[in-house]
Design a protein around this nucleic acid. Structure first.
Length: 488
RNA sequence: GGUUCCGUGGCCGAGUGGCUUAGGCACCGGUCUGCAAAACCGGGUACAGCGGUUCGAAUCCGCUCGGAACCUCCA
């Protein structure tokens, strides 16, 4: 464990404040993040949450924690709204495309994994599926029934919210009061089976035509919308674990129900630190598949979206997200991406420059305190934008040393190299720039640049500029520095 | 309608009582360069509006205006 680990503070939705982070078991962290529902391609909004928690995961690892990171795949669709009330989302999609439900699941799971890999997100340690944990879910329902916090009705099982609220506060995560919730419930399908409008389904009986259904003590059906996360987090992380993450939009009802289910089944609140990432917006509105206000990663990477002026590299998009705090909304625009692209390039280039810096006998800058600033930023509730700003302080320093306006000792250069690489690559998860040393191109470039050098020495600017412009058209940038000419 | 949150300079985006005029991008001036580009140095514009608390507020309170999330599947 790094000594800086003791200074980590985390914003806990439960208390609404930043709290000093102390895991249940010293040196170990259990973390659960709500994963995607694989009934369509992930859009960028989904990705932001997963990238935010990838940052959390990566920093915890960097601090030296042994982390078990669990992120589920929801392969039983939650109930859909509109005219299809009570119909499983995945089953619905399957019927439309004449495919097996598990075919849909497979297709979109692969897409999800592919996208996450492009964003350089580390895979979770366990990625459980809802359909793979029917037994655990049924057992949990039984426990809740046994403890008297649920009731069976017409082949379905519902959670008794008012009964639960007598012993435990319902609304701890979302900050809601049960009276307000009662006053605001709407009429939904199946309300007549419930004792109270606020009650939510743990198990739902399936209609004849329903494709995805399983046998249970209460008949053929499928698990309720909120149960899978409770069952799987309990199985892999225990009845109480450290961190539960997800998007803001899941606070209510999903996470509220998870707290209730866990508490009702096991007697103790399941999560110690609830963390919520904020929404990615497009045109200042939440990205959402259902409203069509969204952009897919593929469209972005290929530049085929009408909303974007050009294509953007996954690492630029990731860097862009890192320039905002995970608890703030972030508006997605082509201009903002373009700005991030330049910043990203400047940062990566400085890291490359750092490798070839000449050491001096003394340093004109305080590198150790700069490095401390990296840790301070991340320890303050994973404040990546502050970290990035500190990294740019380092960029300025590196360039100044290169230009001879500042100096660093060998030890400081080594320290800066190690820590910059750690924070940029390991923590922020920015993939290192690809080595440009294409073996076949390098000698050619050496030759061309040598010819250009001769032309310049002869003050043959026409030839010199023709070479530079020609290379530029080919996507190669030539830079004339004091130490000679470089290209990239 | 209810609950909660937000409104920062040309753009993105940190900061939450009194050195941050954070940082990135853009812009202007300078250095360097054959000219550029890159880099470095310097520069400007800000805290939605109004009122209040305070010795002092972008930061606390109230109101107004504007926007968002949730209340129903959603990262």
């Amino acid at each position: 464990m790094k000594e800086q680990a003791t200074a980590l503070s985390v914003y806990n939705t439960l208390s609404g404040t930043k709290e000093s982070f102390k895991p249940l078991n010293e040196g170990f962290v259990g973390m659960y993040v709500c994963g995607p529902t694989v009934y369509s391609n992930v859009h960028l909004g989904n990705c932001r949450t997963f990238i935010s928690f990838d940052l959390v995961y990566r920093y915890l690892l960097h601090l030296g924690y042994k982390v078990r990171y669990v992120r589920n795949i929801t392969d039983v669709g939650h109930l859909v709204d509109d005219a299809d009330q009570g119909e499983d989302k995945i089953a619905k999609k399957a019927r439309l495309e004449q495919l097996e439900p598990m075919e849909i699941v497979q297709m979109y799971t692969l897409d999800f994994h592919n996208v996450m890999q492009q964003f350089n997100a580390l895979p979770p340690n366990i990625e459980p599926t809802a359909t793979g944990h029917l037994i655990e879910q049924i057992e949990m329902i039984q426990d809740i029934l046994d403890n008297g916090y649920a009731y069976e009705s017409n082949g379905s099982v519902y959670f008794d919210v008012e009964k639960y609220n007598e012993a435990h506060p319902y609304g701890a995560v979302s900050g809601r009061k049960i009276e307000d919730l009662i006053a605001n419930t709407r009429d939904l399908d199946g309300q007549d089976e419930k004792r109270a409008p606020l009650d939510f389904a743990l198990w739902k009986n399936a209609a004849e035509e329903h494709i995805m259904k399983w046998p249970s003590p209460w008949g053929l059906g499928f698990p309720g919308w909120h149960l899978e996360c409770s069952a799987m987090s309990t199985k892999y992380l225990g009845e109480t674990f450290d961190i539960h993450g997800g998007g803001m939009d899941l606070k209510f009802p999903h996470h509220e129900c998870e707290v209730a289910q866990g508490t009702a089944a096991n007697g103790s609140t399941p999560v110690r630190y609830w963390m919520h990432g904020n929404m990615l917006t497009l045109n200042r509105k939440k990205m959402s598949k259902s409203t069509g206000n969204s952009i897919s990663p593929d469209e972005l990477f290929s530049g085929t979206s009408d909303l974007m002026e050009k294509a953007f590299d996954p690492m630029v998009v990731r860097f862009f997200m890192m320039q905002a705090h995970y608890r703030s909304t972030l508006d997605f625009t082509s201009e903002a991406l373009a700005a991030a692209e330049k910043g990203h390039e400047r940062l990566m280039e400085a890291i490359s420059t750092l490798q070839s810096l000449k050491a001096s006998n003394e340093s004109t800058a305080d590198v150790p305190s700069l490095v401390n600033a990296f840790y301070d930023a991340m320890n303050d509730d994973f404040n990546s934008p502050i970290l990035v700003s500190q990294l740019f302080e380092a960029v300025k320093l590196i360039n100044s040393v290169r230009d001879g306006h500042a100096s660093l000792t060998e030890a400081d250069i080594d320290l800066l190299s190690t820590e910059m690489a750690a924070f940029v690559y390991d923590v922020l998860g920015i993939r290192p720039a690809e080595e440009k040393g294409e073996t076949r191109l390098s000698p050619v470039m050496d030759l061309i640049l040598d010819l250009r050098k001769q032309a310049r020495e002869n003050k043959d600017w026409a030839t010199s500029d023709k070479i530079r412009d020609g290379l530029s058209d080919a996507g190669i940038t030539v830079k004339d520095g004091k130490e000679g000419t470089t290209w990239s």
